[in-house]
Design a binder for these strands. Structure first.
Length: 261
DNA sequence: GCGACAG
DNA sequence: ATCTTGTCGC
């Protein structure tokens, strides 16, 4: 028996329309951001079932962006990817991970959009509202709106004529930065700039490398340096008994802290 | 009907 | 996101 969870796209859209009214857009002083969270989700297909890996890492907002805590949740995902409804898929595994470290952080950087969304409620806004924390969406591709140049800044404008994102060029990468919750566009731009050294913000990079390392381990390969990258992480696995046991064993073999539930 | 379409 | 070979550039 797999995927006992059902998903209704129309209901999900209604939820977004209701929840979007809770978004607060306002200035956020970058100096008030001391610890920031990076989140990520990856997937792996196993006998027709889809396992999701949710990662949440807390790091200093200043170089060298030292990791202070990390939580990983592994469980089955029963929601498909539908453009505009990404949050319902990713949150299934990201929320259990983020909940473990949310008390430590001042802001969340999310892969995906914030208010630059058909219903003004992308995954970054969703996470921000649910946790009552400032959040910023940083996406690699545009979801909605048209781009418009204002002086030397490129912004994304929605159908209502409202600027909902800015385009940052980082090492050949286009980054769509949009407010999620408790932050405005100028603040979001300044904060993302301060967190970006390479092509992506450091929190995203860190969550991504953790996610990739876990993925390799689950596929039976132990990447060099995996133990170091995953050292700050605690793991929780929710799966069938035999499946969870195998995963648990592999992680513990590498000296990692893993449990079930 | 057609194009667009985060991860 | 994931799959997947060779290839371009630092």
């Amino acid at each position: 028996m797999a995927c006992n969870v059902s998903f209704n796209a129309r209901t999900a859209q209604k939820a977004q329309m209701l929840l979007s009214r809770r978004i607060i857009i306002r200035k956020l002083d970058p100096r008030s951001v001391r610890v920031v969270a990076g989140v990520d989700a990856s997937y792996i297909v196993n006998r027709g079932r889809e396992l999701g890996v949710g990662v949440a890492v807390a790091l200093d907002a200043k170089p060298p962006f030292r990791a202070k805590a990390c939580s990983v949740y592994i469980g089955e995902v029963c929601v498909p990817y539908i453009p505009g409804l990404l949050a319902f898929r990713e949150l299934a595994v990201m929320a259990p991970a983020l909940s473990k470290i949310v008390n430590l952080i001042d802001l969340i950087i999310v892969d995906g959009h914030g208010i630059s969304h058909p219903r003004r409620f992308g995954i970054a806004s969703h996470i921000g509202v649910i946790y009552g924390k400032p959040s910023i969406g940083v996406a690699k591709k545009k979801l909605i709106g048209r781009e418009k140049n204002i002086d030397d800044l490129t912004v994304v404008v929605n159908d209502a004529g409202e600027p909902v994102a800015a385009v940052l060029k980082k090492g050949g990468q286009r980054l769509y930065v949009s407010p999620g919750h408790l932050v405005d566009l100028p603040s979001a731009i300044a904060i993302v700039e301060s967190l970006t050294r390479n092509k992506l913000p450091e929190p995203t990079l860190r969550a991504d490398s953790i996610s990739k390392a876990i993925r390799s381990i689950l596929k039976g390969v132990a990447p060099l340096g995996a133990s170091e990258v995953l050292a700050p992480c605690e793991f929780r696995i929710k799966a069938s008994l035999e499946e969870a046991s195998v995963i648990l064993q592999r992680l513990r073999q590498l000296g990692l802290k893993a449990s079930m539930g």
